[in-house]
Structure formats: structure tokens, C-alpha cells
Design a protein around this nucleic acid. Structure first.
Lengths: 198, 198
DNA sequence: CGAAAAATGGTGGAAACGCACCATTGTGTA
DNA sequence: TACACAATGGTGCGTTTCCACCATTTTTCG
């Protein structure tokens, strides 16, 4: 809300942009974009009702010519990695210096390749979030939350043996030899984020 | 409204402050602050139209020199925790004793570190590093690095039984029921930091 | 000084982990 | 169409955890 307002001001006052639409959440952003087909969509990935990722993918399909700039606060490394992978046209950190943004927005609209904000601090060095399967991720979350094989198995509706296999598999992938070390590695590699637990 | 009036009076009469602006909501507070660049912003986190958190973050960006004091009623612990984490310059409970506030506001403006109001009742208890003994910390690090009781015992030159006791003790303190959960909690509580491991 | 907390040691037992090695079925891709 | 891989199930076994309940000595602090 606040962010949107200030971005709006900045765009109009210092960027000579026409702001043709604003949306409160991802769904609204999508429907609005479909009808307005803007040159540039500035998107905050921390949105109510839907994740920014979904919006980005939908936008690519419906408005392939719209440039997408993503605005992000100190969000989960995991999510950020997805944003990077989705090849948006620009990534801006809310914690960053907003004074040059207007210029960069223009460059993006002109189709220039935008050098992303420095994400080295927030991005995990890839141990491959992707290299974990869906079941392995579910198992990992359970372990991090203190669930044991049987509990996780119950939650997922599968056998404890199978869960045990998943745990073993994750441990091999992350080179951990105990569940505790597994959690540590997962945090280091950005597979787990403190804000996602509990 | 009522609160604002009384704060205003208090500031002028007993604090010899110049009140250079007042705002009805977060948006207004921001725009006003941007133009007035005040020494001190007194903010109620329970505001219409936007959460105080957003305003605080925006203020930090636009008016980095403005001290921020947060006024709060009995709101959600979660929100309060965010306020604490956002490192505002002062936190005051509406339920608290307002008579010394003027002096404390001056102290804040002078750049002195302000001891926050007692939030122990409303804040989610976060274990701080001090609550772990030296041996417990050493044990915790070992666990996080994948060492098991025997290994840790060897490294510390003590019995595995003793290490086991330390682990049990930490788990009780952090309310964890497995070593994995222990590590998770330790990360959440800031007892462990990804950069410290390996 | 005296109490509280930390540090140290032990035994024991049920449950869980860690890790073999076995298998079948589906899905996706070269 | 194969071939890899995910997902699912199983058995077995030595090791470790987790927790209870026992103890003494040293350190810390009002």
C-alpha cells in the first residue's frame, strides 16, 4: 500500500511515466494487465492472495510484450531464486537505493538487459532446490519441524519406510549424516527459511 | 485521535518539543515526513490504511535520520515482534506510564539507546544466547554440524553422558523434541547463524 | 557464607535413526 | 520404445537418540 503509493509518486514525478493501473493483489494485477496490456508491470512478490511467481507465469502467457520488474523486500531466498529463474526483466530490492529506479525502469522498457540488484547476500548458493523432489521437500519440512518418520508418513498418507527413504535421500544429497546436520545444511543452502517455519 | 491530542499536549507542555506535523494515517505520515524531515516521528502501529511496519520501512529509506518512536496498544505479539526487529528507536506501551515519556523522547533524539518498555508479556519468548550455558552452546554447535554425542564428548574431553544431558537441556529450553527441530529453533532464535557454520 | 546454577559423571530402556539391500509401479524424456 | 527417475512398499540390524532418575564437585553471585 505504502510502497505502491511511493512508487507511484516516484514514477510520475521523476520518471515521467503514465501509471495506467494499480492493483491490490496478484489476481487484480492479472485481470488489469490483461485489459490494459501495459508496457511495464512493477510487481511486489509479497502479495496477498497469490504468489508473485504465479502472476509472472500468467503474465508471460497473456501479455508476452509486457516487461516485468519485480520489487522485493527481505523475502525468503527460496522465493527469490524462483523469481530469478523466471527471468523477469528487472529485480529491485526494497532495501536498495530507489533514486535511480526511474531511469532503470526506462531502460527496461527500451528492452535493454537489466543488471539485477545485488542478490548475492540473499540468494543461497545453489545446492539445487530443484534437485529435491516434491516428497523430499515435504519430508524436509517435517523434519525441520520436529516430526519423525511416523508422523510425516501419517501426514502424507504413506509408509514410514518410504519417508525414511526420502530422509536418507535428502541426507545424501546435502551430504549430512544426521537429521540435525541436514537442517543446518538446508538453512545454509536456502532450502529452508526461518520465516517459513511455524 | 484522543491519544494524538494528549501526546501533542504532553510534548508541548512538558517536553518543550515543536510539533511540526500530525497525520491521520500511515500514508499521510509518510508524505508529511518526507517534506518536513522531522527529528522524531511518533508512530502508532495501529493505524488506518497501512500497517505501521510498512511506514517504518519506508521512513528508514526516505528519512534515515529521523528517529522513530512506536506507540502501541496491546496488539498482536507477532506484529510487535516485527516492530522490535525493525529496530525502531523506542517502543512505548499505551498502557504504560506516560509521565516520563517526554524525557525519553529527548534522549532518543539525542541518539541515546532507549531501553524499550517491558514487552515480556506480549512478546513471543525468544531464547537469547545468554540463556544457554557455555557447554550448551558448544554442544549445540556440534549438533548443528552433525556431530553426535560421542564425537562432541571427545572434542570437549568429557563424557558422552554429560553431552547427552546438555542436549536434553537445550531441547527443553528451546522446546524442541528432536535434534533437527532443535537446530531449526536455534536458527529462528538467532542462536545459530548460517554464516557461522563451516 | 550459603544458595543457585553449572559442570560433571553414571545406568537403563523404549523408541527412533541411519543405512544396508530388496522390490513394483508410474511418469517423463531422449 | 527404452531408460532414468520418482514414488511407493518392505525387512533387518547395529547405533543413537531421548528421556527418566540417580549422583558429586565447582563456580557464581546476592
Amino acid at each position: 500500500m505504502v510502497v505502491r503509493k511511493s512508487i507511484h509518486d516516484m514514477l510520475v514525478k521523476h520518471g515521467s511515466f503514465d501509471v495506467i493501473g494499480e492493483a491490490a493483489d496478484g489476481i487484480e494485477a492479472l485481470t488489469l494487465s490483461k485489459s490494459l496490456n501495459p508496457d511495464l508491470l512493477i510487481l511486489d512478490i509479497a502479495m496477498p492472495k497469490s504468489t508473485g511467481i504465479e502472476v509472472i507465469e500468467e503474465m508471460r502467457r497473456w501479455c508476452p510484450d509486457t516487461k516485468i520488474a519485480v520489487l522485493t523486500g527481505v523475502s525468503s531466498p527460496n522465493l527469490l531464486q524462483h523469481v530469478v529463474d523466471s527471468k523477469v526483466d528487472g529485480i529491485f530490492l526494497k532495501s536498495g537505493d530507489a533514486s535511480h529506479w526511474a531511469g532503470e525502469f526506462h531502460a527496461i522498457c527500451a528492452g535493454e538487459d537489466h543488471e539485477h540488484a545485488d542478490l548475492s547476500d540473499v540468494l543461497p548458493r545453489r545446492t539445487d532446490a530443484r534437485s529435491l523432489t516434491r516428497r523430499e521437500r515435504q519430508t524436509l519440512f517435517g523434519i525441520a519441524r520436529g516430526e519423525q518418520n511416523g508422523t510425516i508418513a501419517e501426514r502424507l498418507g504413506i509408509s514410514a519406510n518410504t519417508v525414511d527413504k526420502y530422509r536418507t535421500s535428502i541426507m545424501r544429497k546435502l551430504r549430512a549424516h544426521t537429521s540435525a546436520e541436514l537442517v543446518t545444511r538446508a538453512f545454509k543452502d536456502g532450502l529452508l527459511d526461518a520465516s517459513e517455519i511455524d
